[in-house]
Nucleic acid binder design. Structure first.
Length: 463
RNA sequence: UCCUCGAUAGCUCAGCGGUAGAGCGGUCGGCUGUUAACCGAUUGGUCGCAGGUUCGAAUCCUGCUCGGGGAGCCA
């Protein structure tokens, strides 16, 4: 008999069907004549309720082994459930214990656990309702991203994880090396010579695939990257990871407005997709995690994002009458409290802030005609802060060279990036979206460590 | 990295100088339809680690480790 997944059974199967399932026991309720056992196989939030009658052969011996966490195979008939709570239930005719689970030591109980505790049992926490829902939504998000770009003719390009360009200025980098650290620390006066290293030069884990994505966009017009990136920043917050996933579209023949349009359309598409594919999980988040999850999602989908320039944002902040910890002045970077005011209090929806002062943004962003600002854009989302950061890139060789010189960046390793401006250079734009933050935003989860299966943060690389 | 709060039973916490507690979980028993089941009984501890103060420290002090919240850095 073919193995059925529980999500499909709960949705489509009819009473009278004979089925076989395999999964893990979530709860068991023993009565005198029979027991209720709920089985979950990860395909859905809801469990399938199984009734095991005490007249089943070896009942006592088997029911003793069925505890929270036990892996079982059950075959039987589906019947209409006489009680409230479920449409159908499975009357077991055969029960096989596939893997025991010792209830005395199994750390998961059927009651609620704190997320802090669950992080210490990263190998088992996936079996909880919340982490299960998160991972299904995470998967749906990834799917939505590919569908969105693929349906618009974007090429998924694979930029390198190991890279020699450290010039983006996006935080501290992890060095990749095969040099012996033991040897180096013993030889005090010896200088590290990367010439002897694996690649013959100093290499790092990538902090962004953007510069390489620009190479690809200059040949394929519209491309996107979707993969892991790394920051060795000592950040201890609920929004930062040392290893996180990023989506970075890059579009040739596209200006900052086109960039904003794509980003807004993109976010709306993902939210719509997740609501459609994971209604049960989203309902769960709305009930148990954050009561605003569904309202926020509708807000993203239906409301046009606010769009203001940095200069207008400063003006709004100055007129807000708020007593900010960091005083507002043109030229400063927006602090968390400022971003929060704009997205959460003033607009109450995502806001795209554009044209930041050149001094607080990266060298590759296109200089505006005023000579003071660059064609950058950040999308600030309520409850999350900066979720998207993008810009129109500087396509003019002389202007780019002047910026590099101004910022005292060594142009030598950027030779290929500069050559892109020499041979068929075109206006182009792109943005980066923190994938884990997106999942955090959609699910309403407080801590980014609970939306990725294996979080990498300072002092933590277990599992 | 900075500020701040915390660490006591498997989990969530109370106790805040004088014999280590509760709820949940686990175990045993009961219950003809439960669904975070219910009822009764029972089990369970190097009070994060290392020093110090004291007749006496889970409790006060110092250092360290780890965790939460906030900030910076950013996505």
């Amino acid at each position: 008999m073919q193995l059925e997944r529980i999500a499909r059974i709960l949705k489509e199967s009819q009473p009278g069907e004979r089925i076989k399932i395999k999964g893990w026991v979530r709860t068991k309720r023993e009565l005198k004549e029979f027991s209720f056992v709920e089985i979950n196989d990860g395909s859905s939030l809801a469990n399938l309720q199984v009734i095991i009658n005490s007249n089943l052969p070896h009942y006592n011996e088997k029911i003793k082994k069925i505890n929270t966490g036990t892996a079982v195979a059950i075959e039987g008939n589906l019947v209409e459930s006489p009680a409230k709570g479920q449409r159908i239930e499975l009357h077991a005719e055969s029960v096989d214990i596939i893997g025991d689970c010792d209830p005395e030591t199994y750390p998961l109980q059927k009651k609620r656990h704190s997320f802090e505790f669950l992080r210490t049992i990263g190998h088992l926490r996936m079996r909880t309702n919340t982490l299960g829902a998160v991972m299904r939504v995470r998967n749906a998000c990834a799917n939505a991203i590919h569908q969105f770009f693929q349906s618009r003719g974007f090429l998924w390009v694979h930029t390198p994880i190991i890279t020699a360009s450290d010039c983006e200025g996006a935080g501290e980098l992890f060095t990749v090396t095969t040099l012996s650290l033991e040897e180096i620390t013993q030889q005090k006066d010896k200088q590290i010579t990367y010439k002897d290293d694996f690649f013959g030069r100093h290499t790092y884990l990538t902090v962004s695939g953007q510069l390489e994505a620009e190479i690809m966009a200059m040949a394929f017009t519209n491309v996107y990257t979707f993969g892991p990136t790394f920051r060795a920043e000592n950040s201890n917050t609920s929004r930062h990871l040392a290893e996180f996933w990023m989506v970075e579209p890059e579009m040739a023949f596209c200006d900052l407005e086109g960039d904003q349009n794509l980003a807004e359309e993109f976010l709306k598409y993902i939210f719509k997709y997740v609501l459609e594919k994971c209604p049960e999980d989203m309902e769960f988040f709305n009930q148990r995690i954050n009561n605003n999850v569904l309202k926020n999602a509708e807000n993203i989908i239906n409301e046009e994002f606010a769009r203001i320039t940095y200069t207008e944002a400063i003006d709004l902040l100055e007129k807000s009458g708020k007593n900010f910890e960091f005083p507002v002045a043109w030229g400063m970077d927006l602090q968390s409290e400022h971003e929060r005011y704009l997205a959460e209090e003033y607009f109450k929806k995502p806001v795209i802030v554009t044209n930041y002062p050149k001094d607080i943004k990266a060298f590759y962003m296109r200089l505006n005609d005023d000579g003071k600002t660059v064609a950058a854009m950040d999308i600030l989302a309520p409850g999350i802060g900066e979720i998207v950061g993008g810009s129109q890139r500087e396509e003019r060789l002389d202007v780019l060279q002047a910026r590099i010189e101004e910022l005292k960046i060594n142009p030598e390793p950027l030779w290929w990036y500069l050559e892109l401006r020499k041979y068929g250079s075109v206006p182009h734009s792109g943005f980066g979206l923190g994938f884990d933050r997106l999942v955090q935003f959609i699910t309403g989860m407080d801590n980014i460590r609970d939306v990725i299966p294996f979080p990498r943060t300072p002092m933590n690389a277990e599992f």
